[in-house]
Design a protein around this nucleic acid. Structure first.
Lengths: 257, 257
DNA sequence: TGTACATCAGTGAACGCGCGTTCACTGATGTAC
DNA sequence: TGTACATCAGTGAACGCGCGTTCACTGATGTAC
């Protein structure tokens, strides 16, 4: 995962992303044709994203998108070689949008307010998910039957987690994250099994890594429960309950209140 | 939610469940025709469940099920009035199967080994989900587009949660669940917002209810991450890491190690 | 115990709709000399 | 600056397939007298 953060890789991957999403690399000296192409490609993904919101991923149809574009269905193949490639573009776009929301939420907090940064990340995830439930479902819900995500999604997929890891790492380094007592020590195997998670929060002991995993799975567990209907008729006013639980997670990490 | 636990409601709902699943109430004096009908209805749901495992819920097709039954597609309508009703039966069956697995896991533990009971529940959920990923996705993953779950699913849906609530409640009553210190108190509104959750674990203070929610969302958050691919290339040997995290949740609830 | 009737299971054809993908094609846009 | 050629975008028809649901029907099973 560290290698994913090297500048070369970032550069290569963002090129792959652009190629995947917009059919080609955009640069300064684009011809008019290239401009139109990029624009139409973006229009296709925008329409597809809207269809996602009404019919969900399994119902996403190239023909329906083409109709709305005012094109004949086969014309879409100039832009995406298959339905799966369009889905991949939507997934990457989604991860990036969520990642950006999380980055932005973190960025406006004072650097040393670690509890505040964590809460900002939590709220960003939840609000992003509530605003675009089908996109969240595409990323964190049931896998789309018959669809196999390519490796290219990984960089985008962990953008939010990278932010989270940085918060934990910096909080621990600043001494603002005193490990909670009374919890069992992780087994020896944990270090190896979760090696990649540990790399996201360098310098943090396994005990804290484990607790960080508790908080992260707790965040997404809540959001999934809320979005997928498990809280229907069970929890009212979910915003305040969510807020409290996430504060609680911060406290369990040993962050100041 | 309390009203759902009254004997009358349990009785009425289990009748609804049987009617939904098997087309009629089974009783001692069934005619041969009724027996065949019940058998074929079960066969239909079994085949549908298998199809679920390969194509997922959105791809579930009455025609495909009929083909495998050796029937003409319209014959299915003798047993299920529509595709949605078949889906509902699968969902209720799924919740009941998971609920039963959880009940069984809890039942074999010594009553006063609350940590053991909690871990048994966790493992039962995870193992059930890993064994039938598409069924888990049907229950806890993205909602099936265009499908609206009827109210009848509620009783089955909370079977596992009822077991969990009982463990928490009994542990607290036995004094084996000392509330963790250093965590923020739930806001005043929490009691009302989570009233139904509180009813599942009677006699337990809000602070513990909140922590119990942390553990429960943590359990399903983990399982969803694991099943839906979020741990791919990130966490190896997930069983041991899962075990540790769930032990940690027990400790955070103040249960003995 | 036997007959007349009602109920039910399953058939087969049809309606009306959708989908992804391929392919030969026209006409417009861009490029090289 | 003008022409010849190559590239590209979009068309329209087709292939081959799928789906849920309705409806009039046949023939078997059950029931009431």
């Amino acid at each position: 995962m560290l290698s994913h953060e090297s500048p070369e890789c970032q550069e290569r991957c963002s090129r792959i992303f652009l190629v995947l999403c917009y059919g080609e690399v955009m640069n300064a000296s684009r011809t008019a044709r290239e401009r139109v192409r990029a624009e139409l490609t973006r229009e296709i993904t925008d329409i597809a994203r809207r269809h996602l919101a009404t019919d969900g991923a399994p119902g996403l149809s190239l023909r329906a998108v083409a109709r709305e574009m005012g094109m004949v269905s086969s014309a879409i193949y100039r832009y995406f070689p298959s339905r799966d490639d369009l889905l991949t573009a939507l997934i990457i776009d989604g991860y990036n949008a969520l990642g950006e929301a999380v980055e932005d939420a973190d960025a406006v907090c004072p650097r040393d307010d670690f509890t505040g940064r964590w809460l900002a990340v939590c709220r960003a995830v939840r609000e992003w998910a509530l605003a675009r439930p089908h996109e969240y479902a595409l990323l964190y819900g049931s896998p789309v039957p018959g669809y196999q995500a390519p490796e290219d999604t990984v960089v985008a997929a962990i953008r939010d987690t990278v932010v989270y890891g940085r918060i934990i790492s910096e909080a621990y380094a600043a001494g603002a994250l005193t490990p909670p007592g009374g919890t069992p020590a992780p087994p020896a195997a944990f270090a190896g099994d979760a090696a990649i998670v540990r790399e996201l929060m360098p310098g943090v002991p396994d005990d804290v890594v484990a607790q960080a995993l508790v908080a992260w799975t707790g965040l997404f567990g809540w959001v999934s429960f809320e979005l997928f209907g498990q809280f229907n008729n069970a929890i009212l006013n979910r915003a305040t309950a969510f807020d409290h639980l996430m504060r609680r997670h911060a406290a369990l990490l040993g962050m100041p209140a």
